[in-house]
Amino acid sequence: MQQEERWQTQNKLASFDEAVLPHLHAAYNLAHWLTRNYTDAGDVVQEAYLRAFKFFRGFHGTDGRSWLLAIVRHTCYTWMQHNRSPALCVPLEDETDEIESTDLDPESLLLQRADTLLVRRALEELPIEFREVLVFRELEEMSYKEIAIITELPLGTVMSRLARARKRLQLALSSHMHAEVLT
């Protein structure tokens, strides 16, 4: 009986390694973008993996990445609630769909000259709710549906949030670039 238990636990570790461990980079990338700090990201990811292992019996799906990222995200939020000022956890104002202004032509040119460092800074400065949908969509290349499941948002909200996130990013980028041009 004990032998069997041991075998089950070993077996659990083996299938966990197979289903979840390959997504370590995705987990770390998300944690890094959410915490904006590599030390915190490492701690959060380690904690998330332990949680994931504990709940692994509850994982029956095939998408280990989404499953893991949902846990990483949750661990991040919990971690930030405990370790950071509440100001960082303020909920978003109302989701209103804003129409793109069409006078972005000059910015379009500026955008093409923006370097990675600027983009990184602009993305890091976005509120966390916008940052995370962009990370899911552009860095992890996830579908709206996958994002909706991980963030527990309706599909329509995922789309409108992405639209607002992009608009904010665009504005942030152009203001950084204007500042750079001036200096």
Partner: peptide
């Protein structure tokens, strides 16, 4: 822009 996990992690 993608943060790869360090090997030691």
């Amino acid at each position: 822009l993608y943060h790869d996990a360090p090997d030691r992690l």
